[in-house]
């Protein structure tokens, strides 16, 4: 039986995977992957909640629309930042990018 709770559980699992990647991974690309996974978990929740409203409303889908567009922009800027960091430091290991550390 598929209910709203099942969607929330899948979304929570995706969020957990993303938080694990954010806190453990050292490669900047993997951290970007983790961010994308977390954004997907949020989008899934919005779509599920708006479908289970009675009567169903389209406003949650509008939010997911904006969220997907924002995620695309975030990925473009993030990848450009990774390219610049690689060019300046020859590494994308975030533990080694510590020039600003006081």
């Amino acid at each position: 039986m598929v209910t709203l709770v099942s969607y929330i559980i899948v979304s929570a699992a995706l969020l957990g995977i993303g938080v694990y990647g954010l806190s453990v991974k050292r490669n900047a690309m993997r951290i970007l992957f983790a961010i994308e996974i977390i954004v997907n978990a949020a989008n899934l929740n919005f779509a599920a909640f708006t479908r289970y409203l009675n009567p169903p409303q389209v406003s949650g889908q509008v939010i997911v629309f904006y969220s997907i567009a924002a995620a695309a922009m975030e990925a473009a800027v993030g990848l450009a930042l990774i390219l610049v960091a690689f060019r300046l430091n020859n590494t994308i290991d975030v533990r080694k990018l510590n020039k600003l550390k006081g």
Binding site: T3, L4, R51, Y52, L53, N54, P55, P56, V58
Partner: peptide, 9 residues
């Protein structure tokens, strides 16, 4: 809500 509301988007 446990069941899908009737009607679709």
């Amino acid at each position: 809500p446990s069941t899908l509301p009737s009607g679709s988007l």
